[in-house]
Design a protein around this nucleic acid. Structure first.
Lengths: 188, 188, 188, 188
DNA sequence: GATGAATGAGCCTTCATTCAT
DNA sequence: AATGAATGAAGGCTCATTCAT
C-alpha cells in the first residue's frame, strides 16, 4: 500500500485544507454532514474533494487516521516521561480530544477490533492498539496500573470515556475520569 | 403538553406497533434507517407513522422515552433490594441493554443535560436523571459508593460505558465495568 | 414474477404518462436523456418516476417491453392474413416503427440472444423471438420465404434494417427493404 | 480548414497514440468511455488529449475519420481485383470491422447523409460515399449487382448490416449477409 | 383514521473542460 | 508542449413529508 507519487505542492496544500475542513465540519455536524459542506469550508470545489478522496468514506477514514496519528505522536512524546504519568496523561489527552471532536470516538472503536473483539482489523485500529498496549505495559511494570488489566478492556474504557466526553462539561469529565483512574490503580 | 383526546383503540394499537417496529429497525440499522422501513416492519402505511409522529425526530424521541421508562421500571423494581446491589445492578443492566441496542446510548446522553450540563433538558432526561440520582444517594448512604461522586459524573460514566459496550465482547465489557465499579467504591 | 397488486387508478395513469414521456424523450434524445427530462415531459416529479421504475434501467426496459408488446399485437393481427403478406407486412411495420423511434432497435438486439446467440435471454427477447419465428415458419410453409432461412439470421436482418432505418429517408428505406426481401424470397 | 503549422515530431506521435487509444477504449467501453480513460490508455496526460482534440466530440470524429480512411484504403486495394468480388469483398470487410468495433457503425450513418438524406454532410461522409459509389458502379457494369440499386440504399444496407453485426455470432452474420447479397444480385 | 402515491430538496459521484505549473 | 489538479454542472437516486383517495 504505497503512497503513490508525492503530490504537487498545491495539491498537498489542498489535501490538508480538505482534511482540516472535514475535521471541523464533522465535529460540528456529525459524519452525516454533506461533502459539499466540507468543500465549502475548505474553499475548494466539490470535485477537488472527490479527487483527493474518491468516496465519502475515504474522507472519513482519512480524518480518523489523522487523529490516530496525532494520538500516536502524543504517546511518543509522552514515552520520555515516567510510565505512570505517561499512561494517565495519554488517557486524559485522548478523552479531551474526543470532547472537542464529535464522532471522534468512532476511530477508537476500531481499535477495539485489533484489541480483542472479532471482525476485520484496520490499519488505524492496529496502530492505535499497539500504541496503547505499550503505554499500558510500561505503566504496569512501573506499578502505576493494576496488573490484571488487559488492553482490550482498557480500550473499551477509552472508547466509553471518549464517547461520554462529547456532551459533558469539562469538570464533570474530569471527575468521571478520576473515578475510572481510581479503578485502574493498584489496590491502595 | 396535553395528550389530546384519548386515541381510539386501534390507533392506540398502531402506535404501539410502530414504536416496537422503530425500536427493532433502529437497533438493526441505526437511526438513519428510513421511516418507510419502520412502517413496513410495523405493518402499517407510512402515512400512519406520520400521523402518530409528525416528524421522524418525534419518533426517535418516543423510542428513547420508551427505553428510559423501561430503565426506570427496572430501577423501581430494584429499589426493594439492598441499596448497593440495586445500584450496581441497575448500572450493569443499563449497560447490557445498550450492548444489544445500537444507538441506544443516545438517550442517556440526553440525561446528561438534565444531570448537570447546559442545554435544554428533555422530559426523557429529567426522568432518568431523577431515577439515577435516587439510586445513587441510597447507595452512598448504604456505604456502597464513594460519597464524593455526584449524579452528573455518574451519568457520564453510564453514557460512556453504554457506548463502549456497543461493539465489545461480553467478557471485555464485564472486565471494563469492574474497573469502573472499583473506582466507584469507597476506599477500602 | 407477479405484477404485484393492481395500482390505484391515478398511479396507473401516471405510470402510463411516464412510459409515454420516456418513449418520446428517448426517441428524441437517445437513451442517455436524463430521467429528469422524462419526468418533466410526463408532468410529474422525479420521485414519481423512481417510484414506478426504481432505476433508470428499469424504465428503459419497460419502454422496450411496451414496444415489443405492440409488435406482438401487430403480429397477432396479421396472422389472420395470408402467411406471405403477414410476414413481409410485419417486417415492414417493425422497421417503420424503428425509423421513428431512435434507439428503438436495441430491443430487437435482445431478441437476437433468444434467437441463437449466447448471453442471458430477457423476457422481451424471448417474446419477440417466438413471435417472429411463428411468422417465419408459416411464411416458409406457404412458399413465400426461402426454406434455408433460420430465425437467427432473420432477427439479425430485422435488427440491421431497423437500425439503418433510423436516419434514412422513407423511399431509400423502402428500396433497401425491397433488396432484403428479394434476398429472402425463394429462388424464382 | 488549415492544419496549422506542422506538428513537432513528438506531438505527431502523441496524436497517433491518442487516436489508437481512443479506438481501443471506445471499442471496449462504447462512446461513453471517459476521456480520462483514453488518456491513460495512451499514456499521456489528459491535458494533452484536449490540446490535440479540443472537445471530446472532435476526438470521436477523428477516430471515425481514421476508420473511414482504412475502409477507403481497403476499397482502393480491391479496385485492382474484378469488380464483383471487389464489391462484395468490401461490403463483407466493412461489416466485419463493425462486428469487432462497437459503435463503429455510427460513422457509416454519417455517410448516409452524403449519400442521399438531408442534413449537413461531413468530410467523412463524403469520402466514404464516393468510395462506395465507385465500387457499386463498377460492379453494376460488370453485371455483378442489379442495375436498379442506388448508392443511397446501398449505404443504408451497409449501415444496417454493420449495426446488426455488433451483437451477432459470426455464422449468423454470414448467413444474413448472404441473404442481402442474394437480394443485390441481378435476377438469376 | 389509514393508506400509499406524489413531491422535490439534497446527497454522492462522474466527467468534460480549463489553467496554473 | 505536456501535465494533472481544480472546477462545477449534471445525473442517478433516496427519503422525509404532504395530501388526495
Amino acid at each position: 500500500m504505497g503512497e503513490g507519487r508525492p503530490l504537487r505542492a498545491d495539491a498537498q496544500r489542498n489535501r490538508a485544507k480538505i482534511l482540516d475542513a472535514a475535521e471541523a465540519v464533522f465535529a460540528a455536524q456529525g459524519l452525516s454532514a454533506s461533502t459539499e459542506d466540507v468543500a465549502k469550508e475548505a474553499g475548494v470545489g466539490i470535485g477537488t474533494v472527490f479527487r483527493h478522496f474518491p468516496a465519502k468514506e475515504s474522507l472519513i477514514e482519512a480524518v480518523f487516521l489523522a487523529r490516530v496519528r496525532a494520538l500516536a505522536d502524543k504517546a511518543a512524546a509522552l514515552s520520555q516521561a515516567q510510565a505512570g504519568p505517561a499512561f494517565y496523561g495519554f488517557f486524559t489527552y485522548a478523552v479531551e480530544q474526543a470532547a472537542t471532536q464529535s464522532a471522534y470516538a468512532d476511530v477508537l472503536s476500531e481499535a477495539a477490533v485489533a484489541g480483542g473483539g472479532g471482525g476485520e482489523p484496520s490499519v488505524v485500529g492496529v496502530e492505535l492498539a499497539a500504541t496503547v498496549e505499550t503505554l499500558l505495559v510500561r505503566a504496569q511494570q512501573a506499578g502505576a496500573v493494576r496488573a490484571d488489566v488487559g488492553p482490550a478492556e482498557l480500550i473499551a474504557l477509552l472508547i466509553g470515556a471518549s464517547r461520554a466526553a462529547e456532551r459533558v462539561s469539562p469538570d464533570v469529565r474530569t471527575r468521571a475520569l478520576d473515578i475510572v483512574f481510581d479503578g485502574l490503580r493498584p489496590i491502595r
